[in-house]
């Protein structure tokens, strides 16, 4: 149905690093194991990102495993003279909603809960549907991927909040804030999901069975 030419069909490869349009000489007697390099920037050229499925799955699953303790374990301890209070991600959001400002609570909730969840579901769904060569809602899936890629790093918000509060609230016995292991798991989750979305190749969304046959 689509007459727009694709690079892979024309024997071209777009360099992922510098954007240069290169001739795909993979079949032109290149010794085995040698990868094609971009003539302009020298980066390796790939028609599709190498091992995109397995790498993305591996990173996504690793991220999900770390996301469990990130949510269950407290991320921050607030200690004062007569009171010790451990906060998880979600209790921090609730506290902000009740005591501070609901608008910021919504932002933190989005960054810490909605965005990571969205990433797990979206990337998982994209991986499954691309693998199946499905042509269902392709423009929407492409858009979803770009959204995930764009908002991914904002999840680091809560990590910076804990770090800053830890450095600021140092009133010896009166009041202290300490980071707890949850925040480390959460930071690692964000990093891994960022790597996962980077290793997914959105071109696979459009590589349906029909285009290969």
């Amino acid at each position: 149905m689509n007459t727009l030419p694709r690079a892979a069909d024309l024997g071209l490869i777009g360099c992922h690093v510098c954007g240069q349009v290169c001739k795909d000489a993979t079949n032109a007697g290149l010794p085995d194991g040698d990868t094609l390099a971009c003539p302009r920037c020298g980066s390796a050229l790939h028609r599709r990102k190498p091992d995109s499925y397995s790498r993305t799955w591996a990173l996504l699953i690793a991220a999900f495993i770390l996301y469990i303790p990130a949510n269950l374990l407290p991320i921050m301890r607030t200690a004062s003279l007569n009171d010790i209070d451990d906060n998880t991600i979600i209790s921090g959001v609730v506290e902000l909603w009740v005591k501070g400002s609901p608008d910021l609570a919504v932002i933190v909730f989005t960054a810490s809960i909605v965005v990571p969840m969205l990433k797990f579901f979206s990337l998982g769904m994209l991986l499954l549907s691309s693998r199946a060569g499905s042509d269902w809602a392709r423009p929407q899936r492409a858009k979803l991927y770009r959204l995930v890629e764009f908002i991914g790093y904002w999840s680091m918000l809560d990590v910076f909040v804990v770090a800053l509060l830890t450095a600021l609230v140092r009133f010896s016995l009166l009041s202290r804030v300490e980071p707890l292991p949850g925040v480390i798991f959460f930071g690692l989750t964000v990093v891994l999901t960022m790597f996962a979305s980077m290793s997914f190749d959105p071109r696979m969304i459009w590589d349906g069975r029909n285009s290969n046959d």
Partner: peptide
Amino acid sequence: ADALLICEHCDTV
């Protein structure tokens, strides 16, 4: 090569 442009997200030329 400069006259062409490839979409990074779907490989369209």
